[in-house]
Structure formats: C-alpha cells, structure tokens
C-alpha cells in the first residue's frame, strides 16, 4: 500500500515534469494516418530512438523489422517490411503517425499501437499474464518523447 502510494506520487510528479505541451494519446490528431504536430514539442533524440527500437522492453521494433543500420543489434524479424529507406518513403509526419498508431495508416495492421492506452481485450499488467490492478493505470507502450526519438532515427534511414 505504502509503495503503491509512493509510486502514484512519483507518477504524478513525472507527469508534472513532462511538459505541459505533451499531447495525450486521446488528443493526437491523425490525418490520413499522419500526425503533423510533435507530441512533445521537444526534438527527438535519434540515439535514444535506437535504444527504444532495439530494446525488448521498449519498442522491440526489430522483433518484426529488419534494419541494416541496426545490424549490430540481434535479432531482426521478418513479420514487417524492412525499414531500410523508410526516411525516403515517408515524411516525418507520416512516420510519427505510423509509430504512434500504425492502424491509422494500415487498417488492421499486426503492428502494435505504441501511443494508445485503452480499448484493449483482456489487457495485462505488462508481461506478467495477470490483469492490472486498475485498467485505467495502463500506460502507453512508449512515451510521447520516445516516439519522437524513434521518429528522429527513422528519418535518417535513407537509401
């Protein structure tokens, strides 16, 4: 109980620190799958984007996508298309939309929606297999800034 309270307080603080300009998942404006406005107003950090894309507990993007520039990080999957040249094929706004919620661009896509926090069927508490104590505590798979960071890296993927 004590720890739960402490973490709620910590969470509130974090949210307070994250700029007031952060757009909540519910307020993101999609226009034919693209999102024009930065989710945070803070430019993305491509180096952190790489971390997000390769880390199992974060985006885990390479589980499904091959990316030649990330060759040093094993293992790359084949479920989605190679992301080589994604920065040529898509504008930054389109990439932001795809990473935030790919289903807006590709209806019924198997790609997870990384900036969404409700509307699930039997959502669990991360990978525990258990239901969360409170479904409204579910956080997005990636934070707004992490999405900006990933987009900052994706735009560098040019042929």
């Amino acid at each position: 109980m004590r720890t739960a309270l402490a973490s709620v307080v910590a969470l509130t603080l974090c949210v307070g620190v994250a700029q007031a300009d952060t757009i909540t998942p519910e307020d993101v404006m999609f226009d034919y799958g693209e999102v024009a406005q930065s989710l945070t107003g803070t430019p993305g950090d491509a180096a952190n984007g790489i971390k997000v894309m390769t880390n199992r507990g974060l985006g885990n993007c390479i589980a499904c996508h091959q990316v030649t520039a990330l060759e040093e990080y094993p293992y790359h999957g084949e479920v989605g298309p190679s992301l080589d040249g994604a920065g040529d094929r898509w504008t930054p706004e389109q990439l932001r939309g795809i990473v935030a919620n790919a289903k807006e661009m590709f209806p019924d896509s198997i790609m997870p929606s990384f900036y969404k926090r409700s509307g699930y069927i039997r959502v669990g508490d991360a990978f525990t297999g258990k239901a969360p104590a409170n479904e409204s505590d579910i956080t997005t798979l990636l934070t707004a800034q992490e999405i900006e960071d990933v987009v900052a890296f994706l735009v560098t993927l040019k042929d």
């Binding site: 589980a63 790359h76 084949e78 997870p112 929606s113 039997r122 579910i138």
Partner: peptide
C-alpha cells in the same frame, strides 16, 4: 482470431499470417 492484450495480437496473427517468418530469433 481475437486480438488479445496490449499488443493486440491473435493466435492467427502469428501462426496463420506469419508462420515461417522470424519474430526476433
């Protein structure tokens, strides 16, 4: 065919649509 969980994946997404593909290793 139900897409369960926060990753919204059904059995079919992995084992019907993507068998023979690598997912991570």
């Amino acid at each position: 065919y139900t897409r369960f969980g926060q990753l919204e994946l059904s059995c079919a997404n992995c084992h019907e649509d993507n068998y023979d593909n690598l997912i991570r290793a």
